[in-house]
Amino acid sequence: MSEIQIRFSGSGGQGLQLAAKILASALALEGRSISMSQSYEPTSRGGLSRSDLVVDSSAGYPLVTEIDYLIILDQLAVENSTGMIKSGAAVIVDNERVDAPPPGEHKTSTLPLVQTAREVGNIRAANVVSLGAIVGISNICAQKSLLQAIHDTVPSRFVDLNLEAFKRGYALVSANREEDPHLTAVS
């Protein structure tokens, strides 16, 4: 299996670590090896935050060097990843919070992640909405694994909310597939 580098980024408090953790958990269920690292500023809320996953690392280096999939939930996080995005990578940005997506040779989708979360009932579920979107785009793991991972990771009283958020995120991608040719191009 070839190495995949995934980054969830935004501002502190947006649940980026949790998103990465759920995905890592789902991948582990499928026997994949992961390296998850994170970076945040010394504030619990606000400030740049990112969580990186290196899946099936070939060189053993656990940190991202060339991102395959990038989620940006806040304009704040744009600059940090600029220059690390693999050409042809999939970049998903929130339509509300990100005004200027990173430039470069990659496919950028602007999606209503935060809006969808709001609709689901909690603006903080934008992380799982984006998780749905990335699984929808990448097929990096089976939906089933991911739903299981949500069950395993999220406190029980939030499970339903997160399952719904995931499905809505996933649906977001399929709904937009027709309109955005890039989305179908990813295998």
């Binding site: 953790k21 090896s33 992961i34 390296s35 998850m36 690292s37 940190l63």
Partner: peptide, 9 residues
Amino acid sequence: EVIGHLVES
């Protein structure tokens, strides 16, 4: 810090 916070399988 990287290793401390790194999650690996």
